[in-house]
Design a binder for these strands. Structure first.
Length: 268
DNA sequence: CTGGGGACGGGGCCC
DNA sequence: TGGGCCCCGTCCCCA
């Protein structure tokens, strides 16, 4: 199950970026981190070899009509961020992220209604028509928003990974994903490779024993902030994840899942 | 079986 | 545009 909602699930899979431009270089972590470990540099796995890449012609897509967006109209990413992390996701919809990139929670009717509410002239005849799906809108902003959330998203370039079948809406997202295959950050101590420098730094803490994240409630310290966050739940009377049936709360979603799988939901 | 810690993956946000 | 960091999440292991 893909974790990212940027992963596209359809579109033209034949589109491939120029992977020769996506090559990343091995990241060298500050030498002081290795001062206590006079280990030789471990050769990178074969997958890290530049020879693993083959140049693929960068594609172009006939650009559809891109109406300039009015100021203040958020981009797709902005829209996604506007959904925000106001509240933790419910345990039952953890997969919802998988769809938010290609589907909008806002219906077309809602868009049109919002456009009318925000535009005093919106009551007039709807005169802004989408060139792609022929839907009409009474305001330019309504049309622009529709295109931003739907039609342009459908016709936007897709960036697919050569190592797997994932596709991304931006080259930057794809570049970042490619690193999960090339693993350019290699631990000099044990040779384990990571996709990002900070992942490697966190791994190095397992060698050094450094635990920079301390619990304010007890004396425990952690090398990983996420683990501290999970630990903090153990100090909370009301846990973050609650069973919908028996209202029992859990510090981790995995514990809630175990609880549900153990038969609580069946019993009700 | 349950709860918790350790290690890690990966996309988003911010600068 | 890219790097660093944040956050959410998973998997595994152990008490």
């Amino acid at each position: 199950m893909p974790r990212s909602f940027l992963v596209k699930k359809h579109f033209n899979a034949s589109k491939k970026p120029n992977y020769s431009e996506l090559d990343t270089h091995t990241v060298i972590i500050s030498p002081y981190l290795y001062e206590s470990y006079p280990m030789p540099v471990i050769p990178q796995p074969e997958i890290l070899s530049s020879g693993a890449y083959s140049p693929i012609t960068m594609w172009t897509t006939a650009a559809p009509f891109h109406a300039p967006l009015p100021s203040g109209l958020s981009s797709l990413s902005g829209y996604a961020s506007s959904l925000g992390r106001v509240s933790p996701p419910s345990p039952s919809d953890t997969s919802s992220k998988d769809h938010s990139g290609s589907e909008s929670p806002i219906s077309d009717e809602e868009e049109r209604l919002q456009s009318k509410l925000s535009d005093p002239h919106a009551i007039e005849a709807e005169k802004f028509q989408c060139s792609l799906c022929s839907k009409t809108y009474s305001t330019f902003s309504g049309l622009a928003k529709h295109k931003q959330l739907h039609c342009d998203a459908q016709s936007r370039k897709s960036f697919s990974c050569k190592y797997c079948d994932k596709e991304y809406v931006s080259l930057g997202a794809l570049k970042m994903h490619i690193r999960t295959h090339t693993l350019p950050c290699v631990c000099k101590i044990c040779g384990k490779a990571f996709s990002r420098p900070w992942l490697l730094q966190g791994h190095i803490r397992t060698h050094t024993g450094e635990k920079p994240f301390s619990c304010p409630h007890c004396n425990r310290a952690f090398a990983d902030r996420s683990n501290l966050r999970a630990h903090l739940q153990t100090h909370s009377d009301v846990k973050k994840y609650q069973c919908k049936n028996c209202s029992k709360t859990f510090s981790r979603m995995s514990l809630l899942h175990k609880h549900e799988e153990s038969g609580c939901c069946v019993a009700h």
